[in-house]
Amino acid sequence: MSCADFGRLHSVAGTVFWLVVCRRCAHYWKLVIILFNKPFRVLSQFTTESDKSVLAGFIDIPGVYCAGRLDYDSEGLLILTDDGNLQQRIANPKYGKRKSYWVQVEGEPGEGDLEKLRKGVRLKDGMTRPASVELMSAPDIWQREPPIRVRKSIPTSWLKLAISEGRNRQVRRMSAHIGYPVLRLIRHQVGEWELGNIPVGRYKVL
């Protein structure tokens, strides 16, 4: 946009949307924001030279791009928008957007294990910021295809975990660091935006 613009979040009847307002001419634009429930084994991009599934198979709205990424083997909330400034505010860790996950792990972590994540753990790329984490009951969600591989001799647990960083495969590395490999990872919230009841493989335009 050529105007001197800035964005503000608005909420009407429970729907959150983003307006860009020009300081000089008072014109405004309602930006396109898409909440997509990304399935397992889908790349967070529209094209690829491989045979992997991409966003183009699910989203047919032109001119939108991912605001942050979600790993190929992770599921849940992926935000797309047509505004570069908003992309940066969501994706860039310096803005501290909180990202919340449901994490199924192998084993049964205790409070001592979770406290390590709350204080921060040292990974190869440095200390993590303190995370919010607690045990939770299994969420009422869709069945993954293919399903996870469960070893009958080892129980699994679900964690509710939130971070304000965006390092590569960070949640998986944090969980592995304390000895509990991730079996399934679902992002259900980024900042103000929540996955809600959007079916897997479908999207909602705000």
Rank of each mutant, 00 (worst) to 15 (best):
M1Y: 12
C3H: 13
C3N: 07
G7W: 13
R8A: 06
L9N: 04
V12I: 13
G14L: 08
G14Q: 12
V16Q: 03
W18D: 00
V20S: 15
R23H: 11
C25M: 05
A26Y: 12
W29T: 12
I33L: 15
I34D: 04
L35E: 07
F36E: 02
F36L: 04
F40S: 05
R41L: 09
R41S: 05
L43Q: 04
S44M: 02
T47F: 10
T47A: 07
T47Q: 14
E49N: 14
S50C: 07
S50Q: 05
D51N: 15
K52M: 14
L55G: 07
A56Y: 08
D60A: 09
D60R: 02
V64M: 08
C66F: 11
A67I: 07
A67Q: 06
R69V: 00
R69D: 04
E75S: 02
L77A: 06
L77P: 02
L78E: 01
N85V: 07
Q88I: 14
N92L: 15
P93K: 02
P93D: 13
K97R: 03
R98A: 11
K99E: 13
K99M: 04
Q104E: 15
V105P: 05
E106F: 10
G107Y: 09
G110L: 02
G110W: 09
E111R: 13
E111W: 03
L123D: 03
L123H: 01
T128I: 11
R129I: 01
P130L: 08
S132A: 09
L135F: 01
M136C: 15
W142E: 10
P146R: 09
P146M: 08
I148P: 13
R149K: 15
R149I: 14
R149S: 12
K152T: 03
K152M: 02
P155E: 12
S157H: 00
E165T: 03
V171G: 01
V171C: 08
V171S: 00
R173T: 11
S175Y: 01
A176I: 07
Y180R: 02
V182C: 01
L183Q: 06
L185P: 05
L185T: 10
R187A: 00
G191I: 03
E192C: 05
W193A: 04
W193H: 02
E194Q: 11
G196Y: 08
I198E: 02
V200C: 14
G201V: 08
G201E: 06
R202Q: 15
Y203D: 07
